[in-house]
């Protein structure tokens, strides 16, 4: 493969007037029409972007376009100056899916799973080179999973599994980390560790981080900027500017999606983002989302 040096002034991700319509409506989805429409978005290197939107608002579609799982969108998508497919093949993007596809009784250890991220594009006859072995160990170290390295993948808690998935994404030494709904199914302690980890990956490794979520708090706490997506882009700026009016516009069709069954939980107030850093976001009035701990 011919490896051209990417232009270092290129933004991490650049989308220009991107629209995408599924060839056929997915089973169960009644309406057709574009999943996302005319989305233009620039993610600078080192930036932490949260993509917020209701379920079915096109977040996953946007994410799949960025990691190269979907193709055929109109408009232009460049990832570090390359096509999305090329960028993922070169290991420039680390992808952390919402769920692991396999059942978890899969007979693999944590280290074997993380190593998959480093060996995906390796020639079949080669053993994994020393450098990549070291990268695998470093990724495990980074997410604080050293003690778990020999444990079977099926014997992890939700939060531990998530860190392992992040390590797998880091094992290919990516420049961009893309996470799909990282807070779903994670307990409070896991969420706190996750926020810390994202903070460290951003400051220590200078990674560009894109987090997709339907949960306002997830994106408000750890991101420099937020993009609100409901088929098209409704807002793209610092989280501080997210007013109830903007949220209402984005979530008009699906307020439940972001707030779940709203209930009062005063003990969780400390989970709110630092008020000194941004304006106090909307979600931090002592409310919490009922579906934080379960599946949406």
């Amino acid at each position: 493969m011919s490896e051209t040096t990417p232009d270092h002034t290129e933004p991490a991700i650049e989308m220009r007037s991107v629209s995408f319509t599924y060839p056929r409506a997915p089973m169960g989805a009644g309406e057709r029409g574009p999943a996302i429409e005319d989305v233009s978005l620039v993610v600078e290197r080192g930036e932490r972007l949260g993509i917020l939107g209701p379920n079915g608002g096109g977040k996953s579609t946007l994410l799949k376009l960025i990691v190269g799982l979907l193709s055929g969108a109109s408009g232009e998508i460049r990832v570090l100056g390359r096509t999305a497919r090329e960028a993922s093949r070169l290991g420039l993007i680390g992808y952390v899916p919402q769920k692991v596809g396999a059942e978890l009784e899969f007979p693999l250890s944590v280290r074997q799973v993380v190593a998959m991220g480093a060996s995906a594009g390796l020639s079949p006859l080669r053993r994994m080179p020393k450098g990549r072995q070291a990268q695998v160990d470093r990724a495990i170290e980074l997410v604080g999973a050293h003690d778990l390295r020999d444990r079977a993948i099926g014997r992890l808690s939700g939060g531990q599994l998530q860190r392992v998935m992040i390590a797998r994404a880091l094992a290919c030494d990516p420049k961009i980390l893309v996470l799909d709904e990282p807070m779903v199914g994670i307990d409070i302690e896991g969420q706190r560790r996750f926020a810390d980890l994202i903070q460290r990956l951003s400051s220590e490794l200078g990674l560009t981080i894109v987090i997709v979520s339907h949960d306002l708090r997830t994106v408000a706490t750890g991101c420099d900027r937020v993009a609100c997506l409901h088929r098209s882009l409704h807002y793209h700026a610092a989280p501080g500017g997210l007013t109830p009016a903007v949220l209402a516009e984005v979530f008009t069709h699906d307020l439940e999606g972001v707030f779940g069954e709203v209930h009062i939980d005063a003990h969780r107030a400390e989970d709110c983002p630092d008020p000194g850093r941004h304006h106090k976001p909307h979600s931090c009035d002592g409310r919490d989302h009922a579906n934080d701990g379960g599946t949406p």
């Binding site: 190269g68 497919r85 993922s88 070169l90 290991g91 992808y95 596809g101 594009g121």
Partner: peptide, 8 residues
């Protein structure tokens, strides 16, 4: 899914 996203 992740397999494809990792370029394998």
């Amino acid at each position: 899914e992740a397999c494809e996203a990792f370029g394998a």
